[in-house]
Amino acid sequence: MKYHWNWGIFFEQIKYGDETYLSWLISGLGWTVAVSLASWVIALLLGFAIGTVRTTPRTWLVRLGNAYVELFRNIPLLVQMFLWFFVVPEFLPRNLSLWVKQEMPAKEFVTATVCLGLFTSARIAEQVRAGIQSLPRGQRMAGLAMGLTLPQTYRYILLPMAFRIIIPPLTSEFMNVFKNSSVAFAIGVLELTFQARQMQEDSEQGIETYLAVTVLYFVCAFIANRMMAFIEKRSRVPGYIAAAK
């Protein structure tokens, strides 16, 4: 194996310009974190709303929620990226379509965030539904019997417990968001994977480049994991499931 190692490459200047490769990677990391966190917020809000709706007694709402989940779960993320970027603007009203295509600020970032957010929301909705359904039936009945309305029963009884139950799968989902954000390179978001490919082509130091980027992804996933572990610890209910310690 012939390979010319050069670990100093990160501090060298790029071929055409006065930035260093390190600055490329740092800005890439910034976009990765931005896309991931923004889509995580969208995914949590929508995911909880849709997951909750799927456990209500309203059949049409349940069907709608199921259809939503099936739609987003059965199309590859990369294809969804292309759909949001190339296809959806064509179906908007004429003026809006022109605005989205020509004037929308940070077009790639917004598109990628919406796409990844909705994709992840379908997966969270599935976990939320499973979490609520894993609660004993009596909890809902007791709530209603005490005179709480259905929304109150969800707000004060079902959702707080379901949230704690699904923290472990939510943790891996949070880590997945960072990993999945790499797909945003395909529509031109200048995130880590995009910068990795660019730096590899520009510097021809592929192994150093990919190692650095891999480590950065690793760190992201690790921090995401620790953050969720912290929330899990702080939100424990004494005397319930994993609370004993």
Binding site: K2, T193, G206, I207, Y217
Partner: peptide
């Protein structure tokens, strides 16, 4: 399991030719 699949794809595409020449 902790690296994005895309990075794994890029890694193999880079490293396999280096190893087998």
């Amino acid at each position: 399991r902790s690296i994005p699949l895309l990075m794994v794809i890029l890694w193999f595409f880079l490293v396999i030719p280096l190893i087998i020449g």
